[in-house]
């Protein structure tokens, strides 16, 4: 069987997949900046990482804390244009409230900028539009 036959028999799926992967890799820096929501969810719910659920309600978590606002409700108030505010809340909430209990995840290097971006990407998936 010739190579071209094989491509034909799959209706060019393999070729298109290859093209897609190529563009994904090419667009990597941009895509990474937008944050990986799946990673973000893991970070937000893992005790040794973000542990946001110690204080905030997030869906599908057993007994989340109630010290901070419910993040599903909170996220309904943020537009895409306000993304940098959400980032800042996590980077260092003292900018908004100098006496906050929320840990300064960025300033104190609890999370990397990439991890914070991932968490924010996850938070935006909670928006019901």
């Amino acid at each position: 069987m010739k190579v071209t036959d094989r491509v034909d028999s799959r209706g060019n799926a393999g070729l298109w997949a290859g093209v897609a992967v190529f563009f994904m890799i090419a667009a990597m820096p941009l895509w990474a900046h937008a944050g990986n929501a799946k990673q973000g969810e893991k970070i937000a719910k893992t005790r040794s990482l973000g542990n946001c659920v110690a204080c905030h309600y997030l869906p599908k978590v057993e007994s989340p804390g109630d010290i901070g606002p419910n993040l599903v409700e909170a996220m309904q108030e943020y537009t895409m244009a306000e993304r940098k505010d959400v980032v800042q809340w996590i980077r260092d909430a003292r900018e908004f409230n100098p006496h906050t209990i929320m840990p300064p995840f960025g300033t104190n290097k609890i999370l990397t900028p990439q991890q914070i971006d991932d968490v924010v990407a996850y938070l935006y998936t909670l928006k019901k539009k």
Partner: peptide
């Protein structure tokens, strides 16, 4: 500490709330 807490912020201000469970 890395989390920037104090004893008082939890046991004065947030007493009665739940940190996780």
């Amino acid at each position: 500490g890395q989390l920037n807490f104090s004893c008082a912020i939890c046991h004065v201000q947030y007493a009665g709330y739940k940190a996780r469970s």
